[in-house]
Design a protein around this nucleic acid. Structure first.
Lengths: 347, 347
DNA sequence: GTGAAAGCGCTAACAG
DNA sequence: CTGTTAGCGCTTTCAC
């Protein structure tokens, strides 16, 4: 194989017409490919002098290692984050937390947005794994701990939000039973008796997901007061616009409630739109405390979750796993009620 | 090299302890590796019978091609999207458009969030290129057409939002001069004379960026009326919270204006927070028309940009480039004013 | 310390 | 139509 590199080791003859490889760097620096690889990986056995020459050669050629080639043998230095809904500001907070935690490491974060459909998120997670990410942060995919097992067997995974017990992977959750209790108790304390709940489609009380726990808490609280009524449970897909439509229709159908506990803030904000338009009085409490919730124009009471801290911790757990830890860790954060009343005072 | 595959071609002896490769599929199906590769790539020269057997073998083994290995020779079937601010709902609209446009193709979208710093976005774009994405959608990175050139030379790039003339890559923009004119004329028509402008740090009128064009339009309009005043130009970093702080401080310092043209809706919403808190009367117009802008609680007048359509078109242009097109294309979309007045009527 | 060489899983050119 | 084979750029023994 002939090389474009000049015979005089240490000096390239012509500028390369292709991306430089480790071989070109080696030629320019006048060392072996293995030596370059060692400098690249900060491996044992490189003299300071060699390191300097190699580094200079890399800079001169503007060399960048090809991740695909590294992936064939080792790491990709990539952490994949699967997000169920990038429009939801709570999820972007998690992402920011993870990015911050990884900013001083060689790891790069890439995001795979979940597709629509029942096994939502699975395709995105698989796409990440196919691309050989070194670790995955999976944010509350409907496939639970069981569904992630085959993947976690070969790639470190941190499950975000799912409460399923898990052996194969770590998890980060906030206490959703507690958070939902805070929300409902707040409404009860204000004197509301008929409280509706707006949750997602297909959520069941049995489910070990954030929304499953919130719905279960709601169900228990209502039954405990003999106030449970199927008609008070509203459902919509994710997204402000569909939540709006669901509540608008419920209102038009004569929803008999004085308060609404929305399973997350996007739903709550959509609900507020319908409520404002209909001109009815319905106290709303949301969940997540997204940034806009505290805006004076909305004044949405919400259950705060420390998204950034949770995302950062997820990243840390992943790094530990990549470094070799094998026992599963499960960390639980504590939600807090943030009471606001400016625009839509709960009665 | 000994194989875990049984001697009887067509039947695997033991379950594999590693991820199956094309070789395992070939063994199970009783064909050559090349044949499997052909089925995989939908290449010419496969009999239906063979295709069936190979497909069955893939399903049986739960085979998934390794993208890194494919990347060494061909494509990764990955489109990388660099986003300057994932919390900004306008950017997520672009992303959704691109995802929709690619949903019926074998391409997977991954997002690289831009980091902080002056050459914001460059690192994310480079990370994408290092990972061998087949194409990049770069959303308004501060490095302009010039800065992206070395990258576009080897990877198809669609620049989003930048108005720089470009040979090396395609671009998608909306007419920001027109959009800004719509916003300012609206305010002028309402009788406002002292109009402030809230833009980002470091933006100049000369810049061929969305915010450069908006600032330039503002400057021209004000100068044309002899109403230009440096003190009316407010600046903040991206983000509702910092925009809030900037406007709060300006108000405290006695900002002498009756209206504010914010360079994008996130800034506008942050500004509204400060304005509401301060209890002053300041008409606000935003830009982008993010979903929350039309919420009755906000009623923010804004300049609409068709984000989904623009994102979808960006993806299409990229596919064309990947398919071989070489001439650069530049498409310009038209913004529209959306007037709203519910909560913060512009006087 | 350094260098030679094998091989990761796939594609594509080529020979049967 | 099917099979053989040569790499892609990198990491990682294993000699020197």
């Amino acid at each position: 194989m002939s090389s474009e590199i000049g015979e005089d080791r240490g000096v390239p003859r012509t500028p390369l017409d292709r991306a430089p490889t480790i071989r070109d760097v080696a030629a320019v620096a006048g060392v072996s490919r293995a030596a370059v690889s060692k400098v690249l990986r900060d491996a044992y056995g490189v003299s300071p002098a060699m390191r300097t020459r190699v580094t200079a050669a890399m800079a001169e050629l503007n060399y960048r290692p090809r991740v695909a080639a590294r992936a064939m043998r080792g790491r990709t230095f990539t952490i994949g984050v699967e997000l169920p809904d990038i429009s939801n500001q709570f999820f972007t907070r998690i992402l920011h937390g993870a990015i911050d935690a990884l900013s001083d490491t060689p790891y790069q974060v890439v995001v795979a947005p979940a597709e629509e459909g029942s096994r939502r998120g699975l395709k995105a997670i698989e796409a990440l794994v196919d691309r050989q990410v070194d670790g995955v942060i999976a944010v509350a995919p409907p496939i639970g701990a069981r569904g992630i097992e085959p993947i976690a067997a070969s790639t470190p995974v941190v499950m975000f939000g799912r409460h399923d017990p898990a052996e194969s992977h770590d998890s980060i959750t906030a206490d959703d039973l507690r958070g939902a209790t805070l929300a409902i108790d707040h409404l009860l304390a204000l004197g509301h008796e008929r409280i509706a709940h707006l949750t997602l489609l297909d959520i069941t009380e049995a489910e070990e997901s954030p929304h499953g726990h919130r719905l279960r808490t709601y169900g228990r609280a209502m039954r405990a007061r003999d106030a449970y009524d199927d008609a008070l449970i509203l459902r919509s897909d994710d997204g402000q616009d569909v939540a709006y439509a669901a509540v608008r229709d419920a209102l038009a159908a004569g929803l008999d409630a004085t308060a609404l506990f929305a399973a997350h803030d996007e739903l709550a904000i959509g609900a507020l739109r319908a409520i404002t338009e209909a001109g009815v009085s319905l106290a709303v409490v949301g969940y997540d405390d997204v940034p806009i919730a505290s805006h004076p124009a909305l004044g949405l009471t919400s259950v705060h979750q420390p998204g950034e801290a949770m995302g950062a911790r997820a990243a840390e757990l992943l790094l530990e796993r990549i470094a070799g830890r094998t026992e599963a860790r499960h960390e639980v954060f504590t939600p807090e009620l943030r009471v606001r009343t400016s625009t839509f005072p709960p009665t």
